[in-house]
Design a protein around this nucleic acid. Sequence first.
DNA 1: CTTAATTTATGACTGAAATCATAAGGGTAA
DNA 2: TTACCCTTATGATTTCAGTCATAAATTAAG
Lengths: 198, 198
Amino acid sequence: MIATELLEKYGALSKSFNKSETIFEEGKSPTHYYQILSGEVKMNNFNDDGREFIQGFFNKGQSFGEPPLFLNRVYPANAIAVEDTELLCISKDNFMKLLSENPSVSLKIIENLAQRLHYKSVMAAEISTHEPEHRVLRLIDYSITYFNFKEDKNGHRIDLTRQQIGDLTGLRVETVIRAIKSLEKKGTLKIINRKVYR
Amino acid sequence: MIATELLEKYGALSKSFNKSETIFEEGKSPTHYYQILSGEVKMNNFNDDGREFIQGFFNKGQSFGEPPLFLNRVYPANAIAVEDTELLCISKDNFMKLLSENPSVSLKIIENLAQRLHYKSVMAAEISTHEPEHRVLRLIDYSITYFNFKEDKNGHRIDLTRQQIGDLTGLRVETVIRAIKSLEKKGTLKIINRKVYR
DNA sequence: CTTAATTTATGACTGAAATCATAAGGGTAA
DNA sequence: TTACCCTTATGATTTCAGTCATAAATTAAG
């Protein structure tokens, strides 16, 4: 996260997106650096059958879509506002200028990329070699530290639908539902009022 | 890649590893920044059944294992020399000092992490939602630009065994063999002398 | 040079997750 | 308030990749 004032000093402008609106599309060239002022964004892909894969969710204060900016490559995924969202946008040129004139910001970017790379490494190994229950549980545990799900007396409330968990782990809804049921039976997690707690 | 002289200025030392020797293990805390002088390194995970997943290969000039260094986290995977390898190693503290005193190096690190994140994004979507043939072909195409496989009159020679392709895409050897056979039948790639060309 | 291990290969069989079908509860938009 | 869609749910069926078995070709090791 880069300080709002610093971004504004380099000409950042805020832009609003309605729920479900597309921010950028897979295959397009990046033009801006984006940071979330409010709302939530997801990055995803669709295969030929229209099946979705969710690369990740991004919340207030987080940036997204930088890698292609640094590589002069096209976006490998779409970015979509999952609720009404306000973004701070700064053009690629201005962003690069900001970076070169403010070395301490680089470290923030590095930490951010490192964190996302870490998540991807963990999930890649999970998706490739583990059975559904393991994958679902690992995603849940990771999301507890990664997103900040609130904790109450029942534990952490996992604010993801079964469908979203499926799209994050490469599983079908029905499989996720059955996996969660089975994990509950084993006492690994709780289902209260259809919501998952851990 | 950071210039050898610069690394040495900050106390980097070279270290040799024999083929199959472990450089670091999953779950351990990072202590050094590593850059390859010669040889090849792979990062991998094993699931409970001993099934391997290869996170990636790293060659001369490349660094690996930085994310946990920046996050104060443990390694999410193992690093193993796939052939006799010589590394340039610099302690975490010295590396951080180098970074803060040489801002231009940060951009190199950022580009490196961005590239790896890009690869992971592409492969995650592939592994999650596409059938074997698609996954194998995508890995091959990505590896052509990512590694530098040499090109001759038959095309790019894919220097990966069927087993390695399987471990990179989360498929079993037999499935990879059949997928490659099928892709050859369709004329998508060539098999000459058991080697894959594209 | 011989032996052992790895790699590619193919066929038969199995099983786990995907698919299909259906339904009820909950939220929300008109 | 109603109608519609999303979410959770469950059972039956199918399918495709995994598994198992076996073998030849090639490479690496002793």
